[in-house]
Design a protein around this nucleic acid. Structure first.
Lengths: 229, 229
DNA sequence: GTACATAATATTGTATACAATATAATTGAA
DNA sequence: TTCAATTATATTGTATACAATATTATGTAC
């Protein structure tokens, strides 16, 4: 009976593996995503690989250059700031709605996600923590019951992960748990003003932890040097 | 020499034809989009048709049901209101940025688009007018110089067209030209407060022109009845 | 005639084959 | 050696072939 639950959705799997790889920082910004390599890695044909890549492109996590191939996105400093601004706008609206519509069940789920994020931090797994942090924010949009916001935020949160990878200098986001907890407290209390303040403060921290003045460190040379060993 | 300019980007063409068809209301919400039919219409293989359909799906203009096929999206009343709310939030932010960044060239381009929209109205071609109206709003986001907003609005504007097709009862959007002109005046003057007020008023008109209480009129039965004649 | 079961067809899902383009390697000349 | 031109290779773009699923049609029992 359990075998029935292992329904393998091949196209979704390829997409999700790539997505997780990027958000877990195993695939650095700028990395070339060779189609046949991915074929061998995931055991599906190029058709599905290309489907996954196109989807990731439309989420702005991957860039596809005609006849050149797909690359993990590497947002410029200018674009990065556009992304953070857009996120700011949408998340303020989201948290506002969430205050109105958050149920007891929602609070429980959000609290659970905070705990998961914290346990990743405790284990020193910052990549997982970053991914979980993003999932918390996305869950807020789900609680807000606005599908377009969920859709837009999915891309923006993913891109934020790339931005942090590229521009953040260290421990600026260690305080995330407290901030998420404070945010959840305000939301579950239905206090829109305080929730928006918390969200603005939280997103401000992310931006403050980044340095956009120096050119980004695109670490895609790693693979190019690997064959010399 | 002119032949060189006719560089046919096949995948984009298929996408654009479908997109225009939907936004010009030639393809009603709920219409089944048969892949081989589209193959014959556009003269490209199913590969490119499926690419275009996937892209339209990610813009939420098309729904794809596994093993069932693709359909022109038909947002429910609930989803429709989520879409209009999201659009409201983003367009207010956009118009705010546009006030700060609008150049003389931008004003000229926006004015030109208003004129195009008006000429379509004058000719009684409301489908084209609706499409041009959407292009004006999208151009505002371009003027705002925020790529994520452009990206999100592209989908939201397209979906709004579907919503108007499904739920709007007639001449509610005839006043569009005046409103766009007033909006442009405020933006080019850099008057953020007035521009936001105009935008809110304008989007309010769209929502006011719709009736979400009665169930939507999905006109995809037309084809089903055609063979009886 | 209706309802169900079964077979035929149509449609979508995935993999592969071929074409077009870009990248890398090789050769030759200055 | 260095640069350019050319060939060879690798990679992406598109079309087609086959597999899996859904839809429709047919037939039979009641």
């Amino acid at each position: 009976m359990s075998e029935l639950l292992v329904k393998q959705d091949a196209p979704m799997d390829a997409y999700r593996q790539l997505f997780d790889g990027i958000l877990s920082q195993r695939l650095a910004p700028g990395t070339k995503l060779n189609e046949v390599e991915l074929t061998l890695l995931f055991g599906v044909s190029r058709t599905l690989i290309r489907q996954a890549l196109q989807r990731l492109q439309l989420e702005q996590v991957v860039e596809i250059h005609k006849n050149r191939g797909a690359f993990v996105a590497a947002p410029s400093p200018d674009l990065a700031q556009q992304i953070l601004l857009a996120r700011h706008t949408i998340e303020l609206a989201v948290v506002n709605l969430a205050c109105e519509r958050c149920t007891a069940g929602d609070v429980e789920k959000l609290q659970h996600m905070i705990n998961l994020e914290q346990s990743a931090i405790d284990q020193g797994d910052m990549a997982t923590a970053l991914r979980r942090s993003g999932e918390f924010h996305l869950q807020l949009a789900i609680v807000a019951r606005n599908q377009p916001f969920v859709h837009a935020l999915r891309g923006l949160i993913s891109q934020t992960s790339l931005i942090i990878t590229m521009y953040s200098h260290g421990g600026g986001n260690a305080c995330a748990r407290d901030e998420h907890s404070l945010l959840l407290a305000a939301v579950s209390a239905g206090d829109q003003h305080r929730a928006q303040q918390q969200m603005a403060h939280h997103l401000g921290h992310i931006a403050a932890g980044c340095d956009f003045t120096q050119s980004p460190q695109v670490a895609n040379l790693k693979g190019a040097f690997a064959h010399l060993s």
